[in-house]
Design a protein around this nucleic acid. Sequence first.
RNA 1: GGGGCCGUAGUUCAGCGGUCAAGAAUGCCAGACUGUCGAUCUGGAGGUCGCGGGUUCAAAUCCCGUCGGCCCCGCCA
Length: 589
Amino acid sequence: MIRTHTCNELSRKNIGEKVKLCGWVHSIRDHGNLKFIDLRDRYGITQIVCSPEEVSEQIWNKLKELKNEFVISVEGFVVGRPEETINKKIDTGEIEVKLIDFVVLNESKNLPFEIEEKEKINETLRLKYRYIDMRKSGLQKNLIKRSDFLFYVREFLKKENFVEIETPILTKSTPEGARDFIVPSRLNPGKFYALPQSPQLFKQILMIGGFDRYYQIAKCFRDEDLRADRQPEFTQIDIEMSFIEEEDIISMVENLLKYAIEKTFEIKVEIPFKKISYNNAIEKYGTDTPDMRLNIEFVDLTKVFEKSEIRIFTEIIEKKGVIKGFFIKDGEKISLKNIEEYNEFVKNSGGNGIGWIRFKGEEIQSPLKKFLLEDIVSEIKNLSPYKTSSEVLLFLGGEKKWVNETLKNLIDKIKEKLIEQKEQFSFVWIVDFPLFEYNLEEKRIQSVHHPFTSPKIDDIKILEIEPLKVKSRAYDIVLNGIEIGGGSIRINKREIQEKIFKIIGLEEKIYLERFGFLLEALEYGAPPHGGIAIGLDRLLMILLGEESIRETIAFPKTQKGVCLLTDAPGDVEYNLLKENKIRIDISEK
RNA sequence: GGGGCCGUAGUUCAGCGGUCAAGAAUGCCAGACUGUCGAUCUGGAGGUCGCGGGUUCAAAUCCCGUCGGCCCCGCCA
């Protein structure tokens, strides 16, 4: 046995015991004839102490060769520390281990960056030397939390009778959705597998196969450009259930999240979460991923300004535009200089500028002051949800969609100032999505969610007449302004599924080729079913207070999709290409 | 496909046309030290200023290109 305890385990209770510890030399404090070594493993730090009169000359000399990050195994006696030298910063601070002997298990070169660096290290270095970055507490803590979280997810789902089933990684390319990663098939030259964007079709097939409750911690792959919260491969908590309706999934997910989050983190989760319809979200927040920590809703000033004599506004209204804005409760937080900034921002977004009114008790301050009659002012003030003695109203006018989007972008700009509690976690469900949207570039109707999403039952009758008015049985879950998951009740009738394919412009030949197996399966007793997928990396990013998804993934890729540790993607040997009947053709620019 | 920011000792940064044949902190190396825990003290080493080209009497500094990283738009059913 080369260790009897971890480096965070020993306490007063162990005093007098002979122990063996293993770990990395975290630091050496050398006082000449007294040396302290902090020995570190992932559990913690234990102080080793040694002086020449207590060990042989040979051991003492060997000790002098130790450097930081050497891996060693130490044998010694646990002793209590003198009262005045107790270190309250570490769990083992009441004891130390008096060295008897030690073995260097491996040496280490000087590290490219320090383990105990307080400042942020360049991410390129961190990714290249990921194994060193992992020795630091930050990434280590995140990966352990990730593991804990998944354990509680599995525990919850197991208790709820879910079956964890793996689905293939080598699968078939699907025409809708993101770009696929492809894998050549040597046994079928010229043909390719695709890596799954999600296990969508397999989980539906599992429902038809009678597994009424399925889940998987599923790797998904999408060959799209990366962002702070997007990696080409990521993990979803993928769930599907039979014999259920929207509300069953929603409440199951609420309970799951509450359980796993509260078990893993010091976070209280209040359920049920709020629900907002898609249309309402757009009207009130200008987005289908509103940040509910903000407590800011748009107010519609169109009717108020319609009666005013202010030309710039009445003109907008005549052109069917709208005037909308939002109140900021703590008006003092917004200076004139800030407003000037926002004005520039609105102009850069293609508008005329921003309108604003500052309410100070009975007084108002505004560039429009001389045009604002008293009754208009009081009507506007009445729209405030806060009615404090010091608030600011920011507003703009124009085409409705532009106004909603610009106000939302403006809020994003001001957000940092307005969020009172950063450590707050505010979930919201977005429901009643439209089933389809019109793609202007491709001039065709496409699915908002995915083509297997069921329309609302009442809307099936207008499916082919007014498809853009059809609502879907889809739901998204949003946390602090970021989409962390989404799902729907699926179509379980071949006839409707075929209609959907046709509406989104898939020819019969194409959809039979791609999805024929699903359509056929739907004819053999497909139960009503639905599910959800939760983006694990993203959810953890938010819960851990990280700015990037990469902080929750052991081996993430850079923005160009490169793994700096392994240098993937790389060249492959010519023979491998030949066996796969692949010829490289990189045309010059 | 496009926009923005960044690249200087091992690390984090400063320097942004001229006493810079580049500097701080930390780390590293050597020596001293028996109660430290961000040890302390003394001394020392350490740089293709990402790479290539240009402008200039003079470039880490300005310009162009290129490579790499980050953030964003497009894209991500």
